[in-house]
Nucleic acid binder design. Sequence first.
DNA 1: CGCGGCGTTGATTCGTATCAACGCATGTGG
DNA 2: CCACATGCGTTGATACGAATCAACGCCGCG
Lengths: 228, 228
Amino acid sequence: MQCAECPLRSSSICHVFSRDDLAELQEARLRQVSLPAKRVIVREGETPSEVYRVQGGWGVRFKMLANGSRQILSFVLPGDFLTLELLHDGPIHASMLTLTRVTLCAFSREQAARDAYADSKRVHAIAHLWGQRVCDLERTVVLLGRMPAAGRIAGLVLDIHAQLTRRGMAAGNEFPFPLRHEDLADALGLTPAHVSRTLTALRQDRLLEIRSARATILDRDGLRKLAT
Amino acid sequence: MQCAECPLRSSSICHVFSRDDLAELQEARLRQVSLPAKRVIVREGETPSEVYRVQGGWGVRFKMLANGSRQILSFVLPGDFLTLELLHDGPIHASMLTLTRVTLCAFSREQAARDAYADSKRVHAIAHLWGQRVCDLERTVVLLGRMPAAGRIAGLVLDIHAQLTRRGMAAGNEFPFPLRHEDLADALGLTPAHVSRTLTALRQDRLLEIRSARATILDRDGLRKLAT
DNA sequence: CGCGGCGTTGATTCGTATCAACGCATGTGG
DNA sequence: CCACATGCGTTGATACGAATCAACGCCGCG
């Protein structure tokens, strides 16, 4: 797909990097990559030479612990930029994995890092992305530190729904949701078994329904109350 | 105290903002403020007109929940900058409270926001600060999501010790630690009672000792193992 | 058709919360 | 200088939420 027709351009970093010059953006794009599900994109500590704008599909950023368990730090959605830390030298903080087939638009890390601070509009856009990332993480800390299982799930689902809505990928209260119970568990500090029980309860209370890789919010106010 | 003699200058944002011109830094500093313990510095959502470099004392960034419980997002230590989000318009993400008497060096938010992006060295330094903040939060998410009480305490104490050491405020394995059990509990998703039990266990295992506002790491390897 | 991955459900265990009582230090006013 | 109040840490008994372990069912797929 050409950048000119990309529906995600306006809601992603591409917008800032090429408001005036679409041809320049198109030319900077090295390639589009398509990865199957369950493929490692990068590993913690690496410094790949490309950065990406996610074009489609879902992924996950996570850390492995010594005891073999996995903590998911965030989900990667279409429109996301991978990754901010590569714009100023740092190796990446966390490993990444695709959950579904994922399409990426690749750019040169080096060039992006140079261009990123070329004008103040871009600098502010990047600072804004950092701010969002921090905000998301802080919400996650609150969920993990102070909320019971149902509240954690409600909070996560509402966050994802808000993201997808902003990027035009949710039709009202229904939206794609390819996460398995195990993914939810690893993101929320729970076990798959308990996620199953909690989702069953949420469904019976007519708050939230997750079926065949789609989620439907049945009672937004109810969920918001749970996620306080 | 004059900026020229400030022992924290080299390990804080002041270094980047005035490597060449100490007089300029000194002049930019609006005032030094001293706040007693348990005083609110700012509340979530506000946009104060000053930013600060913490000169001394400890504080806390936190969010209150509807049910009255508190989640601490991070501790504020001498040398910290308050706050990054004020450098590009955002209102602050979380309320802040002093834990001890705190001394702050105040600067104009407006001027700092203008100067922040004036040269690429500063831009990179700020991006680096964002990166650290994200890194800290990600470690917190791992602690809260996947570790038992002893591991959480170990992880937090080691992080704080590393920070203080970097800033020259820890003498080997002993360092100031003015946190009450309730503060630890609110940061780590535990209750004060359970923090007490866990600290007792850590003391009996000769791993960590916390007494009269000071902490001593008795067995660093043991703690690191607990914190995985 | 059989197999593997995933979700569900039940029985049990475990970690932490909750609630309450108590001790100790510190501060304060009589 | 003592009597008392306050705040914080400690300890114990009990409750509860979630983990663990295991069995089973469903479904998609080779």
